[in-house]
């Protein structure tokens, strides 16, 4: 079954073509990676899939239904949830409260303006479960801005997971991490992918991670998909090697 299908997607900013006739599909349960140099249009592609900006042309389908032009908050409720390249948190709040707000939304309590926000046991259990699962329990009462960079990235993903996604989009989950943290993050992503039965699409510069866990890899250069395949296909693809030449070692 196809979870996400993109057909002939195009987007430009002025004269800059950030998405150029992109087509691809992602099967249910897949871990798919997108790689490409800085400025290739990876984040912009995520922004279109999640409804944050709308494409100039082309269509996006989710579980067979067209979602082009839907707004992000609706898409989140249908299961398309993202984490960000730069962790997007409620920095003055505790780790627990960061998840708590997401859980209020998930349980449909966000319009309730008269009860105590901490009254619901279900919501508390929900948050505790995610915290436990992502190894953040001990830091539950720490303010988000006090966390290490690595933990902030984990919290960013934890907020996304609280929304119980079907399709999880991760924008450079290991950005700015130490080699040690990268290994842990890679394991974590693989583990939650299986445990939460996700379809995962991620953007990454760390090739160990990409070749280690992705079922399928796509290469985006200047808004265009130039290659698609498994690790071996990509490593031996001449167009990919050329695109990356002098930029980064595969």
């Amino acid at each position: 079954m196809t979870t996400l299908e993109i057909k002939n997607l195009s987007k430009h900013f002025g004269g800059l073509h950030v998405s150029n006739d992109i087509s691809m599909s992602i099967k249910k349960g897949e871990i798919a990676a997108i790689i490409g140099p800085n400025g290739a249009g990876k984040t912009t592609l995520f922004n279109q899939i999640t409804g944050y900006i709308s494409p100039d042309n082309g269509k996006i389908f989710y579980k067979g239904e067209e979602i082009t032009g839907s707004n992000p908050e609706k898409l989140v409720k249908t299961g398309i949830v993202r984490a960000f390249q730069v962790a997007s948190l409620f920095y003055d709040e505790t780790v627990y409260n960061n998840l708590h707000l997401a859980a209020l939304s998930y349980h449909g309590k966000n319009w309730n303006f008269f009860s105590n926000r901490h009254a619901s046991r279900d919501i508390e259990d929900h948050c505790r479960f995610i915290l436990e699962r992502l190894g953040l329990s001990k830091k539950a009462e720490v303010k988000a801005f006090e966390l290490s960079h690595g933990d902030q990235k984990v919290l960013d993903i934890a907020i996304a997971l609280t929304m119980k996604p079907t399709l999880l989009l991760l924008d450079e989950p290991t950005a700015g991490m130490s080699p040690d943290e990268r290994v842990k993050m890679t394991r974590l992503i693989k583990a939650i992918h299986e445990e939460f039965e996700l379809t995962t699409l991620f953007v990454e510069h760390d090739m160990d991670m990409v070749f280690g866990i992705a079922d399928i890899i796509r290469v985006l250069v200047r808004g265009e998909l130039i290659a698609e395949g498994n690790a071996a296909d990509i490593q031996n693809n001449p167009a990919v090697i050329e695109a990356y030449l002098g930029y980064e070692v595969l």
Partner: peptide, 19 residues
């Protein structure tokens, strides 16, 4: 209330509230 929580969230990071 929970609604109050959402308002605080909007003040701190409206992008994340959307998402």
């Amino acid at each position: 209330s929970p609604f109050g929580s959402v308002l605080e969230g909007i003040r701190q990071n409206s992008l994340r509230v959307t998402f």
